[in-house]
Computed example of a mutant assay.
Amino acid sequence: MIDEKILKMYKASNKFGTYLEMDLEVLKEGEAKYIIEIKEKHLATPIAAHGGVVAAVIDGTLGVAALTVAGQNDNVVSTVELHVNYLKPVRLGDVLTSVGKVVSAGKRLLYVEAAVTNQDNVLVAKASGTFNAYPAEKAFKMLEENN
């Protein structure tokens, strides 16, 4: 069962995802999806998105997929390692869909993979990441201290 409290906290605190205008959907335990339309603010050149935008979408997708599993034990996650393969250019106006799936979940480490496609269902990036699970109370305490 996905911990709605932890997901709610994540959504409320993810200012970067809000800035990038990423739309989150939890598909099921261990699977998450982000959708983003590439706008002018995402560009590195007059027509192509910055790779960091694609990496941010991927990191978010992988992290939320991991969070749906780790949250069951009152844990949140942080990125330990992120590997991205950029396969095709991402252009102004493209609508990207990034889907992440937990492949392996241990007590402390989770391994997650993602694929990113554009509106034409063309694969533009593949990725994997490792995430550290740690007690949510640490994250909640830090959130309270900063407010």
Results as ranks from 00 to 15, higher is better:
residue 19 Y to C: 01
residue 17 G to A: 08
residue 52 G to C: 01
residue 59 D to K: 00
residue 111 Y to T: 14
residue 36 I to G: 00
residue 31 E to L: 00
residue 55 A to N: 01
residue 53 V to H: 02
residue 134 Y to Q: 04
residue 105 A to I: 10
residue 60 G to I: 09
residue 63 G to T: 10
residue 121 N to I: 02
residue 52 G to V: 03
residue 71 G to C: 04
residue 143 L to V: 14
residue 68 T to K: 04
residue 61 T to S: 13
residue 51 G to S: 04
residue 17 G to P: 05
residue 111 Y to H: 13
residue 83 H to M: 12
residue 56 A to V: 06
residue 2 I to G: 04
residue 76 V to H: 03
residue 131 F to M: 09
residue 70 A to T: 11
residue 82 L to W: 07
residue 70 A to I: 12
residue 35 I to G: 00
residue 67 L to E: 06
residue 108 R to I: 10
residue 117 T to K: 14
residue 128 S to M: 10
residue 67 L to T: 09
residue 95 V to H: 03
residue 75 N to E: 07
residue 117 T to I: 13
residue 107 K to G: 08
residue 115 A to L: 12
residue 40 E to C: 00
residue 11 K to N: 11
residue 68 T to S: 08
residue 87 L to T: 07
residue 144 E to S: 10
residue 57 V to Q: 14
residue 41 K to A: 05
residue 52 G to K: 01
residue 146 N to V: 15
residue 57 V to Y: 01
residue 38 I to V: 12
residue 8 K to S: 15
residue 91 R to S: 11
residue 43 L to F: 02
residue 83 H to N: 15
residue 100 G to E: 03
residue 74 D to S: 12
residue 18 T to W: 10
residue 29 E to V: 15
residue 7 L to P: 07
residue 29 E to L: 04
residue 141 K to M: 12
residue 15 K to S: 14
residue 67 L to M: 10
residue 18 T to F: 12
residue 85 N to D: 15
residue 70 A to P: 07
residue 69 V to D: 04
residue 56 A to K: 03
residue 144 E to C: 04
residue 4 E to D: 12
residue 87 L to G: 06
residue 17 G to Q: 08
residue 117 T to N: 09
residue 145 E to I: 11
residue 74 D to Q: 15
residue 76 V to M: 08
residue 130 T to K: 12
residue 73 N to L: 10
residue 94 D to P: 01
residue 127 A to N: 04
residue 82 L to V: 09
residue 39 K to L: 09
residue 127 A to R: 00
residue 100 G to D: 03
residue 129 G to Y: 08
residue 70 A to E: 09
residue 82 L to I: 14
residue 42 H to R: 03
